[in-house]
């Protein structure tokens, strides 16, 4: 019991130290490619494999399509823009073809506005992606929605370069 507490304490200490070290790691001025998970959070998308047959190639292509798993939004908007509709449709195809597969849609906002309003806005964005998926034939039971509002920025920074990367829905395969 005592030992467990020590281990827990050491774990927390390590976490705090690591946390302190990771500060400043993100450089908001660095160019960040669109549709790349820059958050440091879980991206469970599998890597492409190198097997040679046609079926495997098709699967690899499908997998590759799923690596674009972020939909970005305009300020205070939950409208899915034209350029991100392909992200949604790739996931719609994947979920329709794999009825046992599930995703979690994580809604995020930039840091402007109050925390709880942003929780609402993040949910509205995630719901917009959910509605687009179900409209494309995905079963609602395959989709979970959660909003983190402005609590989990992908990029640190207090300018539009950072904000535009933070207004997003991340599609996480479960």
């Amino acid at each position: 019991m005592k030992r467990n507490k020590f281990l827990l304490a050491v774990g927390v200490l390590t976490a705090l130290l690591l946390g302190a070290c990771s500060h400043g790691k993100h450089d908001s001025s660095a160019p960040v490619p669109v549709n790349t998970n820059t958050s440091g959070y879980a991206d469970t998308t599998g890597g492409a494999n190198q097997l040679g047959n046609a079926a495997e190639d098709a699967r690899t292509a499908a997998e590759r399509a799923l690596t674009n798993n972020i939909v970005y939004f305009d300020y205070d908007s939950s409208v899915i823009k034209e350029e991100y509709k392909s992200v949604v449709s790739a996931y719609a195809r994947y979920l329709s073809a794999n009825p046992a597969a599930k995703v979690r849609l994580e809604g995020h906002t930039d840091e402007r506005g109050s925390r709880e309003y942003n929780i609402g806005l993040g949910e509205r964005r995630a719901n917009a992606v959910r509605d687009a998926l179900t409209a494309a034939g995905v079963t609602p039971a395959q989709i979970a929605v959660i909003s983190y509002g402005k609590e989990r920025p992908a990029v640190e920074g207090h300018d539009e370069a950072a904000w535009s990367q933070n207004r997003r829905v991340q599609i996480i395969r479960l």
């Binding site: 990771s22 790691k25 959070y41």
Partner: peptide
């Protein structure tokens, strides 16, 4: 709140 990303506590 301390730290970023996975390490944030």
């Amino acid at each position: 709140a301390q730290g970023l990303g996975y390490q944030r506590t």
